[in-house]
Amino acid sequence: MSVDEITLGDGLRTSPQGFGAMALTTVYGGTDPDSALATLEHAVDAGVTFVDTANVYGNGTNEELIGRLLTRRPGQVQVATKFGVAGNIRVGERAARGDAPYVRECAEESLRRLGTDVIDLYYLHRVDTRVAIEETVGAMAELVAEGKVRHLGLSEVTADELRRAHAVHPITAVQSEWSIWSRDVERHVVPAAAELGVGFVPYSPLGRGFLAGSVGTEIPEGDMRRTFPRFDAGNLDANQVVVETVRRVASTLGATPAQVALAWVHAQAGRWGLPVVPIPGTRRAERVDENLGALGVRLDAGAMTALDEVSAVVVGGRSADPTWVSAGREDVTSA
Rank of each mutant, 00 (worst) to 15 (best):
S2R: 14
T7E: 15
L12C: 12
P16N: 11
P16Y: 10
G20V: 03
M22Q: 06
V27G: 00
G29V: 06
A36Y: 06
L37D: 08
A38T: 10
H42K: 07
A43K: 04
D45C: 02
D52S: 02
A54C: 12
N55F: 08
N59S: 15
N59L: 15
G60L: 14
N62P: 07
I66Q: 02
R72S: 14
R73V: 07
P74W: 08
G75M: 12
T81E: 03
T81Q: 04
I89V: 15
V91Y: 14
V91C: 12
G92I: 11
E93C: 03
A95K: 10
D99N: 13
Y102T: 09
L111F: 01
R112D: 06
R113W: 03
V118R: 15
I119A: 11
L121S: 08
L124N: 07
H125E: 08
R126A: 11
R126N: 07
G138S: 10
A145S: 14
G147Q: 06
K148A: 12
H151F: 13
L152Y: 09
S155R: 05
V157R: 01
A159K: 06
E161T: 12
E161C: 05
L162M: 11
R164A: 15
A165S: 15
V168R: 08
H169C: 03
T172E: 09
T172R: 08
E177W: 13
E177R: 11
W178R: 05
S179K: 02
I180W: 03
D184F: 05
V185H: 02
H188N: 14
A193S: 10
A194T: 05
E195D: 13
F200Y: 15
L206H: 07
G209K: 04
F210L: 12
F210S: 03
P220C: 14
D223R: 02
R225W: 01
P229I: 09
R230E: 07
F231T: 07
F231H: 07
V242F: 03
R248K: 13
R248H: 09
V249T: 05
V249W: 01
A250F: 13
S251W: 01
T252M: 05
L253R: 00
L253Q: 00
G254P: 11
A255M: 00
T256N: 05
V260T: 02
H266E: 00
A267H: 05
A269K: 01
A269G: 14
G270N: 07
R271M: 02
G273S: 03
T282D: 06
R284T: 07
V288H: 04
L295V: 00
L295Y: 01
G296H: 01
V297P: 09
D300M: 06
D300G: 10
T305M: 12
L307R: 09
S311D: 04
A312R: 15
V313S: 14
G317W: 04
R318N: 12
A320C: 02
P322S: 02
R329G: 06
E330P: 10
V332S: 02
